[in-house]
């Protein structure tokens, strides 16, 4: 079976994000595969180890997203498509989905996996939009995935408010991964060394027959006016005095100032 995994390059979750002039400073950031996408890659690898087949990564991102794609290949994916065109840049969840859907139309797959959301902008929209554009079933935030023996359908376990539900879907479908789906492996050294020989194919807007006016910054419906860091947390208040006086003052403040009691 062929599994396509949608991956996104995001800043390392330990990066201290700097903002300058209303924009995130990307210099010096180290990039990773979005952690939810890693669960998707791992799940794809496990399915292929069980059923045989091929794992293809599909990534929309700038030129240097190649390094992140290589990490996915090092984990064991067979090949990758890099949607690499300045025309794709500056887009939003909607235009990203349009490009990914156009790419998937050119590909053969039995299943598309992705993270439930990317950890940079936390939109949680792209996979579901792609499913809509391709008229495919979609199950999101899955923590356990089993295929039927004939590989024609998938049984997905999801966590819902304190309980669990099971969704069954025909395949092909787009399924997104939630934390808990699996424990991603490390790339083996052999995998890392072998990754540089694995093919990464670049597709541009023209390869996908897309009108540049409908994608990237020109097609985006969302305009980011500016980005601001969350306000610094105000310092705590220290109430002086002995326990009895301080407790009285605390009650007064909770009552009159914080208005919580």
């Amino acid at each position: 079976m062929n599994v396509v995994v949608l991956i996104k390059r995001v800043p390392d979750t330990e990066t201290r994000i700097q903002i300058k002039d209303g924009k995130v400073v990307t210099d010096g950031i180290s990039w990773i595969i979005s952690p939810y996408d890693e669960y998707a890659v791992e799940e794809a690898l496990r399915l292929i180890e069980k059923y045989t087949g091929k794992v293809t990564l599909l990534c929309l991102g700038p030129v240097d997203a190649k390094e992140t794609i290589r990490k996915g290949l090092a984990l064991g994916a067979d090949d990758a498509i890099h949607l690499n065109d300045p025309a794709f840049e500056g887009g939003d969840a909607s235009t990203t989905a349009v490009v990914l859907a156009a790419a998937l139309k050119k590909m053969q797959y039995d299943l598309v996996l992705a993270g439930k959301q990317a950890v940079d902008e936390d939109n949680a929209q792209v996979a579901i939009r792609v499913a809509e554009l391709l008229d495919l079933p979609h199950v999101n935030s899955v923590i356990k995935l089993d295929l039927s023996d004939d590989k024609k359908s998938a049984r997905c376990l999801r966590e819902v408010d304190g309980d669990r539900d099971i969704a069954e879907s025909s395949l092909p479908a787009i399924i997104t991964a939630q934390q808990g789906l699996n424990e991603p492996r490390y790339p083996s050294l052999k995998g890392i060394m072998g990754a540089k020989k694995k093919p990464i194919t670049d597709w541009k807007a023209s390869d996908l027959g897309l009108d540049p006016g409908t994608i990237g910054a020109s097609g985006a419906k969302l305009e980011v006016v500016r980005v601001d860091p969350p306000p610094a947390r105000p310092p705590g208040k220290l109430i002086p005095g002995d326990a009895a006086t301080a407790a009285k003052e605390l009650v007064r403040l909770l009552h009159e100032e914080a208005k919580v009691v």
Binding site: E67, R70, K71, Y186, P187, I192, A195, K196
Partner: peptide, 15 residues
């Protein structure tokens, strides 16, 4: 090289 960087992160993560 990217290979060396990926491997560094792998070992760091293992540690």
């Amino acid at each position: 090289s990217p290979q060396h960087e990926i491997f560094r992160r792998t070992v760091a993560e293992f540690v």
